[in-house]
Design a protein around this nucleic acid. Structure first.
Length: 907
RNA sequence: GGGCAAUUAGCUCAGUUGGUUAGAGCGCAUGCUCGACACGCAUGAGGUCGGAGGUUCAAAUCCUCCAUUGCCCACCA
């Protein structure tokens, strides 16, 4: 009769939690509540600092590319950030998490270009700039909502009303203002730099568009002329027409005497003036150890030339041919010029050696043409120019200082070194890109002028106009180039908070005042240098304030074989698939647990499945409690006067868990926090306390209380299922805004001895329960159990002292009890079980059973006792004695847990 | 070439400033369908912590060297 009633009750909630039935509705409910917007959070939840100012907590979402589809790396990022945001929201902060997308100029342009070519066979040059950009925007309108929609599926509590895009109107304003400000201060200037030029595509290539290939090339060893004292080696004789120096290693004894000298030579009919200079980048072992410096056509040589103020002679033009100022070599294609020069050298007996070497050459990723490094006019941000407003420090200095002085901290710390190393070697930042999609450079030139300018100082103000709004009149042409995407995303922390409108007369207002600097920037370590450094510099430049206090770097998400996930390999896990299959909670948990900051994480479906199972476990815990505890008890206070041993213990464990979880989260140790919660939920609460509670059924407000606390603690990790259970508990508010539990002293925990004994008792109680069920013993009947606290559970079981009796039947327990000598027993009651714990043990009897082992044990125990009791004895003991002591027990394979229990028994 | 990391159970990984017995999940073995949960429960097997030295009363943890793997940067004239 009673059983039927119970089973009927059980049917109201399904035994397996199906996320698909709940997640979409829950997210809608959250959005409707408005709590993702910190302005809407209830006043009474918000904490204030000593000055009476409300606490805020801000994270900007690293904007995914607008054409992206969600991958597991995104989900890892979202899970971590959502965890931080939800945790702080529940802790009384006005927590703001700003969503947005990045226009990802190069990537997006490439996608559209490829698509156009595939569908219509047209290139962007066929279309022209305006029509091509129309196509890009058309494409973006189709794709842009995908990533945002997918982000919502993960449960991310982003403030959608503050959504931003790196190329929207507000950001365009910010970018323009930044450029103009920097230009006016001389931080932005125009200069030359070597770029990767594809003579076939007639365009520059970004560094990541260059492909390197091992190739066999000829290395020529030659003398420039007869009057030049030594030979040099090159794979590109034709560029030697532009040499202005020869570099050697300063340590190289062979050439030391030549350093500083200038030679005028006749190189295959062309006059060159060569200075011998020292540079430690020159390898003594390569070639002849002497390097002909061609500033205009090699990256390294360019740097050497800059350092040594060398003249720059351009030999090769954008068409891949020699320029027209080189006599008979003029206008010859590179390969032809090379042949001619080699031939000439041979004729003059200047070619000493011709050998084949393996060489790493750069090619255009699109057309496989060898790259021609060429100098080209570009816009730069100076990182070295001192800025008055910043205490006469440069951007570089400020950005280094902020980290050195620990205004910005890295998690994990090792990335601090990488940041500083990179920063210290930082050269001026080239911000112009020869692509069409992006923020167009806000510079206009007079149509008539030829902008032959080398640096900002030489700009003729009448010929150039720099401003946010275009100049009036038709005589102006805008610069064709666009800005590096990192220029706009580098402003992300403050451009999303209303800069420049919210920054008047050097004072922050509105959101900018409230939420900047942000607290954490959480992103993948691969963009540490690309993005983070730029954000630091731009924020310091314009606000003279750091953009964020902490940088948390997560690793890459790899497949279960440790490979990068990619579609072409077919090894990728589509997060949307697994979210549908296992639920967003399970996916999030899989990415949070078992991963540590800065380290890559491997993930396979099996892992997600395991966490799905755990989520289901939590569901069933609540299902059991909900069905057994009537609603009137759900808000009842705990009566601390009337606690059982078990109650005290579980409340004590809960306190420890709250502390451990809170501490771990504060230290960005998400995995540890999650694992501790899992351990408490399953091992302590479900497998033990709930089982014990079944012994004495009835009202138990502690069950409900602990469940509620658990839901709060779990919520930042697995928001959906916890919110759903919370709803079933007749809670008035959404769990999103529930207060995080404080670690309290309930005076409910156990003392150390009690705890130790209790740990022992745990398994016995479960065994009793099992035995009761098996032998159909009335729940009301009292059971008396006697345990040797001094003996390990394993020993008890093996030796069949008491537990075996329990497991095989209560009757036998009674019989065994007769032979036991009890003294100094501890008595306790759990439900209807009376437990006597005794430290007494009949050593003689045990000895007889296993003499050898026990002797060893006793010896070791006394040794340990000494060690434990007298640390000074150990500390002060001569080395030799300690070593002898150790040697005595070296070969004994004694399981230490036996020793420990023995130790207890001897005391 | 420069730098950073990793190496712990069959697999994937934890292991906070050196300190009682090196942990978890998965997998494996055995037994459980008893009133939340088989997406479950109980019990168990499995590790000389990559190798070699060193520091220390005490090392997975600190130092040195070596090996293997991965990543980042520079780029070979």
């Amino acid at each position: 009769m009673e059983k039927e009633k119970f089973l009927k009750k059980m049917k109201t909630l399904p035994s397996a939690y199906d996320p698909r039935d709940h997640e979409p509705q829950i997210y809608k409910k959250w959005e409707k509540s408005g709590y993702f917007n910190p302005d809407n959070l209830p006043e009474k939840l918000i904490k204030k600092d000593e000055a009476g100012k409300e606490l805020t907590y801000t994270i900007v979402l690293p904007p995914p590319n607008i054409t992206d589809k969600l991958h597991l790396g995104h989900v890892a990022m979202l899970a971590i950030e959502d965890l931080l945001i939800r945790y702080h929201r529940m802790n009384g902060y006005r927590a703001l998490w700003i969503p947005g997308t990045d226009h990802a100029a190069i990537a997006t342009q490439n996608v559209v270009e490829k698509k156009l070519f595939k569908e219509k066979g047209t290139t962007r040059h066929d279309l022209g700039r305006e029509k091509f950009l129309d196509e890009v925007w058309k494409f973006l309108r189709e794709t842009q909502s995908t990533i945002l929609r997918q982000i919502k599926k993960t449960g991310a509590s982003l403030n959608w009303s503050r959504k931003a895009f790196t190329l929207d109107e507000q950001r365009e304003k910010a970018v323009g203002k930044m450029f103009v400000d920097m230009y006016n201060l001389g931080i932005i200037y125009r200069g030359e730099r070597i770029v990767n030029w594809c003579p076939r595509c007639h365009s520059t290539l970004a560094d990541d568009e260059v492909e390197y290939k091992e190739q066999k090339t000829k290395l020529y060893t030659f003398k420039y002329s007869k009057n030049f004292p030594f030979t040099i080696a090159t794979t590109r004789p034709e560029t030697k027409l532009g040499d202005t120096a020869v570099a050697v290693n300063p340590k190289d004894k062979r050439y030391k005497k030549y350093i500083g000298k200038i030679y005028e030579v006749d190189f295959v009919g062309i006059k060159l003036k060569l200075k011998i200079i020292a540079d430690r980048n020159v390898e003594m072992d390569f070639g002849t150890g002497a390097l002909g410096v061609t500033p205009a056509h090699s990256m390294v040589d360019w740097q050497i030339a800059e350092k040594n103020n060398l003249e720059i002679i351009k030999v090769i033009g954008e068409n891949g041919k020699v320029k027209d100022t080189f006599g008979k070599y003029s206008n010859k294609p590179v390969a032809e010029a090379r042949e001619m020069i080699v031939k000439k050298l041979k004729e003059n007996n200047l070619l000493e050696k011709e050998e084949e070497i393996e060489n790493n050459l750069s090619f255009c990723y699109r057309c496989d043409t060898p790259i021609e490094p060429l100098p080209s006019k570009q816009w730069f941000v100076s990182v070295d120019k001192k800025i008055k407003r910043l205490g006469n420090k440069s951007l570089k200095e400020k950005a280094i200082e902020a980290v050195r002085q620990k205004q910005i901290e890295f998690i994990p710390e090792r990335f601090k070194k990488r940041y500083l190393d990179w920063m210290e070697n930082l050269h001026d930042w080239c911000i112009s890109r020869q692509i069409w999609f992006g923020h167009r450079i806000p510079v206009w030139y007079k149509k008539s002028s030829k902008f032959k300018v080398q640096s900002w100082k030489l700009e003729n103000k009448k010929e150039i106009y720099v401003g946010i709004e275009p100049p009036t009149g038709k005589s102006w042409v805008q610069d064709k180039d666009t800005l590096d995407t990192w220029f706009s995303s580098g402003m992300w922390t403050f451009s999303t908070l209303g800069w420049p409108d919210n920054f008047k007369n050097n004072k922050k207002t509105g959101d900018l005042e409230k939420f900047h600097p942000t607290q954490v920037l959480e992103t993948g370590y691969e963009i540490l240098t690309l993005w983070i450094s730029r954000m630091v510099m731009l924020s310091l430049f314009t606000l003279n304030e750091i953009p964020f206090e902490k940088v948390y770097l997560h690793g890459m998400v790899l497949d279960k074989y440790g490979k990068k996930m990619s579609k072409s390999k077919g090894n990728g896990i589509d997060p949307i698939d697994v979210i549908n299959k296992f639920g967003a909670d399970a996916v999030r948990l899989s990415l949070l647990i078992g991963s540590t900051p800065g380290n890559d994480v491997r993930i396979g479906e099996k892992k997600i499945e395991g966490h799905r199972n755990f989520v289901n476990k939590l569901w069933n815990i609540s299902r059991y409690i909900l069905q057994n505890q009537e609603s009137e008890i759900r808000n009842q206070e705990i009566n601390y006067k009337n606690l059982t041993f078990a109650d005290k213990w579980i409340l004590g464990e809960l306190n420890k868990t709250i502390k451990k979880v809170s501490d771990s989260l504060k230290n960005y140790n998400f995995s540890a926090a999650g694992e501790k919660l899992k351990e408490f939920t399953r091992d302590d609460f479900a497998d033990w306390y709930i089982e014990v509670s079944k012994i004495e059924k009835g009202k138990n407000e502690i069950l409900v209380y602990i469940l509620k606390q658990l839901l709060i603690l779990w919520h930042p990790f697995i928001p959906f299922v916890t919110e759903e259970i919370w709803k079933n508990l007749d809670a008035k508010n959404l769990l999103v805004i529930e207060k995080w539990p404080r670690e309290k002293d309930y005076k409910a925990g156990l003392n150390q001895t009690e705890e130790y004994i209790f740990m022992k008792v745990q398994s016995i109680i479960v065994a009793v329960r099992n035995a009761r069920a098996k032998y159909k013993i009335e729940p009301s009947k009292k059971i008396k159990v006697i345990i040797y606290a001094g003996i390990d559970y394993e020993m008890i079981k093996n030796e069949g002292v008491l537990i075996k009796g329990l497991r095989t039947g209560i009757d036998k327990l009674e019989i065994k009890e007769k032979g036991v000598k009890i003294k100094d027993a501890v008595y306790l009651v759990v439900g209807n079980i009376e437990i006597y714990l005794t430290g007494a043990i009949d050593i003689k009897k045990e000895k007889a059973r296993n003499k050898k082992e026990l002797e060893d044990l006793e010896k070791y125990v006394s040794h340990l006792k000494k060690k434990l009791e007298n640390k000074n004895f150990i500390a002060n003991a001569p080395k030799k004695i300690i070593k002898d002591e150790k040697a005595k027990f070296k070969d004994q394979k004694i399981k230490i847990n036996k020793i420990k229990t023995f130790l207890l028994s001897l005391e």
